[in-house]
Write a protein that binds this DNA or RNA. Structure first.
Lengths: 198, 198
DNA sequence: AGAATCAAAGCACGACCGTTCGGAAAAATT
DNA sequence: AATTTTTCCGAACGGTCGTGCTTTGATTCT
């Protein structure tokens, strides 16, 4: 890996951690330069605008999500086990890898009403993610685990909603039972999505 | 109402609308002064620090929430009708009164990992709100509408989670079906909370 | 009406913001 | 080893940030 790529990676990693705590808009070039031990202008040269930096950090987060949450989950059996694995890998990822919580959740709420290219960029990532949840549910339907009349988009909506609730309970409220609560709610969602026995 | 109170009200209203769109941290004294047509220092004099301004805006939002969401809902019948009314008044409030979405949701995710008095202040408001949801469910239990073994805290968790999901779908994703999706999910939550017939 | 209080403005401050530019050092390529 | 390209720094820019201070004008109270 070339020198440039290497330091850029370092910068993005530091930026992502910072953003998970204090937000992407609060990310400042000067502060970030201090953290990675280089000059403002030296750091700036890698991105050429703050907006580009923000978008690259979001891309970096999305790649990270795929690597640490999605890929590991796909190795599990199709259907329900895979869905449960997503919850588990996401818990681990968002709580272990960052000082703050899941950076994608933070970004989603930060840019939900802030027009611009960053928002547009982020929206695409979110749609991709929600589509993956929907597909995971569809697989469970195809496997005969979930009811064949299940609305998989509705499933994705509820599935993601519960993640957001967990994020708030564990981060803002610092509720120690958050993870347990989340898992119970997901179990309930899965249970009522199951194929009716006959 | 004295002159001071009056302009302060004007400022808070403008600040809240601004924050619902761009966030509470992006709120700047100068920009806000421009919006309400007064000088920076004149506006500053009402709050004496930016932090105090932020907290007063959050208090203002919480009061607003109580007035436009909670109070109207309480006039409905105890139990399920009241719970459904909360969803309806909240929909109306968060979509009609602000340029951005619900300011309390925005604040919650903005301060979830940003330590300080603003965060502490906000946390109290959120706990109060969640407690109200829990109590609303408890009333439905007492009225015999919900199952007597229902975990009302779990109900509040899911109820609030769905609100967060709705917020994201309607704001970031601009999904036109968001409200419908939300209502369906709430119906499902209520349905499975109901007392088992025997 | 006069006195006391308050609201608002103007101005200035130091700090930090994103960004530009030119040059030096380091790395990659030939 | 020479040359080109990349990486990084230092200094400086125009702006905006939050926050004081002082003064003037409006409002409120006696």
């Amino acid at each position: 890996m070339s020198k440039g790529k290497e330091t850029r990676e370092t910068i993005l990693r530091a930026a992502l951690d910072f953003a998970s705590k204090l937000g992407f808009e609060s990310l400042s070039i000067g502060e970030l330069a201090k953290r990675v031990g280089m000059s403002k202008s030296g750091l700036f040269g890698h991105f050429n605008s703050k907006e580009k930096l923000q978008m690259m950090v979001i891309d970096y987060a999305a790649d990270n999500f795929t690597e640490h949450v999605f890929i590991p989950a796909i190795s599990k059996d199709r259907g329900i086990p895979r869905i449960l694995a997503i919850v588990e890998t996401w818990h681990r990822w968002s709580s272990r890898y960052f000082t703050g919580g899941c950076p994608l959740v933070a970004a989603a709420f930060e840019y939900d009403d802030r027009p611009g290219p960053v928002r547009d960029h982020l929206t695409e990532h979110q749609k991709t993610m929600l589509n993956s949840f929907q597909k995971a549910a569809q697989i469970a339907v195809d496997e005969g685990q979930f009811d064949r009349n299940l609305d998989c988009d509705a499933f994705a909506f509820e599935f993601y909603s519960l993640m957001l609730g967990y994020h708030l309970y564990s981060r803002l409220l610092q509720d120690d039972d958050a993870k347990f609560r989340h898992l119970e709610a997901v179990d309930s969602l899965i249970e009522r999505s199951k194929a009716k026995e006959q």
